[in-house]
Structures are given as C-alpha cells and as structure tokens.
C-alpha cells in the first residue's frame, strides 16, 4: 500500500473518527488498571511514604511531554519536507495535548517537591528546561495561529518545533550534566531501582497517557481538517449533516 494513501485529509478524517474512540477506551481501561496497581497493590515507599504515589501521574506526564514534542516536531519536519497538508495538521493537533502534559508534569512535580524537597519550585536544570518546553509548546501554538494564511503559520511553527528539539536532550540529561535538586532516572534501558509493583503502575499509567494523547490528537485533527478543508467539496457535500449519498459512500458524520 502506498504510504501516502492516508495522508489524504478525507481518508485520514474517516480513519481518525473510527480509531479515536478505541484509544479513549484503552486509555480508560489502562488508567483504571494503573491507578489500582499504583494505589492498592504498590507498597508504601520506605523513605517518602504515601506521597511518592504522585509518581504514577508525574513520570508518565513528563515522558509524554517530551515524546509528544518529538512527534510534533517530526510531523512539522515532514510538512516542511514533503509539503503534505496532513503533516502540519497533525503537528497542530498534538501541540495542545503536549502542552497539557507538560503543565501536568510541572504541576505534579511541584506538589511532589514540596513535601520531599521542602519547596514547590527551584530554578533547577530539570525543572527549568521542562518549563522552557512548556513555553516552546505555547510558542508553537501561537505561531501556528499568528498568520492569516495557515500554511505560513504551519511553516513558521514547524521551524520553531524543529529548533526546539534541542531542548529534549537538555531535559533528559540535565540530571547528569548538572548538579540538580531533581533526582536521577529510576527507570532506564539497563534496569530499574523500583519495586516491581511501582514499576508496573507507572508503566500502565504511561500507556494510558499514551493512548489518551493519541485519541485526543485524532479528535483534534478532525476539527483542524474540517476548518482547513471547509471550502472543499468533500466537506461541503458530507459536512455537518451528511447526505444519504455521503453516508453510503462511507463518509461518517464529522
């Protein structure tokens, strides 16, 4: 199959509509399992007590904030390289969800930091670089919407997204490169220093966040496609209230 088959907005619009609910269902199931493992199965931490349970939302949110930025920048790079409309729309659709996870990582980190470090915030390398990531997301969203011609906004935002990629290794390696208040990684490809139940709770929640992010991005990209393609024939003919012919052609209600 031609890889560009799904890069057609009408095709992807239908595909996204069919897939999004399943990702939300998966996210709900995984979140329920993750919270059960995290709050019921996982033992109390010997040093931090119960407050360590913030890890089950903080770490997945932090991982998603970086991963989504990477994916968003890749879509931006694809839109610049191949000049495909859908790539830029995907980058736009991912940005708000990425910003939401970045905000959550900072917020939950602050509420974990207060009882463990004695402060909500410090201008520590990890926290500061994560804050810069939030500003990069805001910049991307603002730049994408700053132009009357959306294609110009796409290009400018994609460029900012690609430049901002330099921040990801800074976030990841900040705890190694500088003497930071933030602890080092508890999980790496070499292994983990965590109790197995804690690890499973965290991984289940990370998967839940992943599924949610995909579902939310798919729903959002459908709105972006509708807005951007509002003057095209396929939207006009099968738009808000699809005709019988449109339904027969397999075009779902947007």
């Amino acid at each position: 199959m031609n890889l560009f088959f799904f890069s057609s907005p009408p095709t992807f619009f239908r595909l996204a509509g069919a897939m999004a609910p399943w990702f939300f269902v998966l996210a709900a199931v995984l979140a329920a399992a993750g919270l059960y493992v995290g709050f019921v199965v996982a033992p109390t931490d010997a040093v931090q007590g119960e407050v360590y349970r913030i890890i089950f939302i903080h770490v997945p949110a932090a991982w998603m904030s970086m991963f989504l930025y990477f994916v968003m920048a890749c879509w931006g790079a694809a839109s610049l390289t191949f000049n495909t409309r859908l790539s830029a729309m995907m980058a736009r659709a991912i940005a708000p969800t990425g910003a939401m996870f970045t905000f959550l990582a900072l917020w939950t980190g602050a509420f974990w930091g207060r009882p463990t470090w004695g402060t909500y915030w410090a201008w520590d390398a990890r926290m500061t670089s994560e804050l810069v990531l939030l500003f990069l997301y805001f910049g991307f969203i603002a730049l994408a919407n700053a132009f009357e011609d959306p294609r110009r906004g796409d290009r400018a935002a994609a460029l900012l997204g690609i430049i901002g990629l330099v921040n990801l290794p800074i976030i990841y390696f900040s705890v190694h490169w500088w003497n930071t208040l933030h602890q080092g990684s508890s999980v790496s490809f070499k292994g983990t220093s965590m109790h197995v139940a804690m690890l499973w709770g965290m991984l289940l929640m990370a998967l839940a966040c992943w599924m949610y992010a995909i579902g939310a991005s798919l729903v959002r990209v459908r709105s972006v496609i509708l807005e951007r393609e509002s003057r095209t024939r396929w939207v006009r003919e099968n738009g808000p209230r699809p005709s019988a012919a449109g339904a027969a052609a397999g075009v779902t209600k947007p």
Partner: peptide, 18 residues
C-alpha cells in the same frame, strides 16, 4: 478541560461550515 475544548473545537468547525 481538554475533552471539553475538543468538543467546542469540533462544534466551532461545524458552525463555520454551516
């Protein structure tokens, strides 16, 4: 909030087409 924003975004797009 994000789920509500997604619904509002969809409604806005549909309204614009109408």
């Amino acid at each position: 909030a994000e789920l509500i924003a997604l619904r509002l975004g969809r409604a806005r797009a549909l309204r614009r087409i109408e």
